[in-house]
Design a protein around this nucleic acid. Structure first.
Lengths: 154, 154
DNA sequence: CCCAAAATATATGTATACCAATTAATATGG
DNA sequence: CCATATTAATTGGTATACATATATTTTGGG
């Protein structure tokens, strides 16, 4: 008997659930090995790429609410990975910069989450990647999802 | 110039991020219209499908930790959507059952999250769905994700 | 039969993640 | 030029989500 559309749909949904599960699990493994969480490492990577970034810009690049990122930065500062510094030109803003410990962490941290997926995808031949992209675009178009500019790699 | 593999990869990752974002947003909209969250509605739907379900079985079907589901059930009980009842045959267990308010909520709640995606996918022609499935399988295989039996629909 | 081990639910503590409100600093308009 | 609005960061409150610890009950091995 021919495989059913129903089964295909179930498999698609399970794949997305599985991807989310894997991303979460990798974050937990990171926590065990480095005493740091996935979102925290994501923030460190962004501060490394954009030195003296403000909290507002960081939260935009992480696609998270400012208050969420504020808490993440709190914990990273307490743990000694970065420092907050008032901006002299606009004293409402802060500049976030890595400490030596933070620089070391970014250098030694393993690939996790989307960075890892990125790495894996680059090993596939271009036509396969193109096929996956087309399928994903079909999905997001169907769900009316706007993909504007999501640069963040967590 | 030919489109680059790099771009395709970025688009794939953004699609996944977008899907997760949409699922979260739908949960929030539900919260506004029904005073209930996505996970809470998911729990109510499962209790409706499996009357007198135990906390352990519910957490298994939701693919969440028992302690997480315990909190969700706490809030639903406080809000009057369901009741806990000690199981007389095994007094360690509890039986969870819906109140009239809970039954009404399950009946009137809109489709959200994966239920909604399921609904949308059924409107696509079978070959398109098949293509998406194959692409997703390629992705999950690449990431070594085991899709066993994820029945939960949130 | 009895006590150790396992299972069930709950409680506690930490980390996201959101919103709303607050505070401080800067821009803007009348 | 000053009152008002806007912007940046923080704080407090709620809801997931996890791990760990605890209490109660059940079960199994000796």
């Amino acid at each position: 008997m021919a495989p059913k559309k129903q089964d295909d749909i179930g498999q698609i949904i399970n794949s997305i659930r599985g991807i989310n599960y894997i991303l979460q699990r990798q974050s937990k493994e990171l926590m065990k090995s480095l005493k740091i969480t996935g979102p925290q490492l994501g923030a460190l990577r962004l501060v490394s790429r954009y030195p003296n970034i403000s909290l507002r810009e960081l939260s935009e690049r992480m696609y998270l609410h400012v208050s969420t990122v504020c808490g993440i930065i709190d914990r990273l500062e307490t743990a000694g990975y970065l420092t907050r510094c008032r901006n002299d030109e606009d004293r409402r803003s802060i500049n976030i910069s890595l400490t030596d410990k933070g620089i070391r962490a970014v250098k030694t941290a393993p690939l996790t989450g989307f960075s890892n997926m990125f790495h894996d995808l680059q090993k596939l031949p271009a036509p396969s990647v193109r096929k996956i992209r087309r399928a994903m675009e079909h999905l997001t178009k169907m769900m009316n999802i706007e993909i504007n500019d999501m640069r963040h790699i967590s």
